[in-house]
Amino acid sequence: MRITQGCFSFLPDLTDEQITAQVQYCLDKGWAVNLEFTDDPHPRNTYWDMWGLPMFDIRDAAGIMMELAECRRVYGNRYIRLSGFDSSHGWESVRISFLVNRPKEEPGFRLNRQEGVGRRVTYSTHAYAADLPEEQRYQ
């Protein structure tokens, strides 16, 4: 199941050229671009691992793309997302975030139903990938 998270996620995966254009847009706006990766694709997982520090003071997308290439080389079979942080007063938050890399196989999610008091049903989603211990998912 193809995961849809962040901007552009209902489009076909962005090409490197398109990613470069998006990154340049972020930089021109003065946002700090950050790379993160994870092997737990649950939408409520906010704890992605950071690939180095957020990149401040960069003028051209080529620098970011260099880091992205390096991140893909190491974690090529995980989810990698790129986010742009706007530090200007009043925003101080992430303005854009999109996936730039995904594993070859995405096993998807299982829907768990739990019947509680008075036959009230609660739902939860569980990533099949998360059944395996960390580091063994998406081999």
Binding site: G52, M55, D57, I58, R59, D60, A61, A62, G63, I64, M66, E67
Partner: peptide, 14 residues
């Protein structure tokens, strides 16, 4: 290596 790369990233495009 990270230090050099950091500078190189900043200089990209210039």
């Amino acid at each position: 290596a990270p230090k050099t790369k950091e500078i190189l990233k900043k200089a990209m495009g210039g």
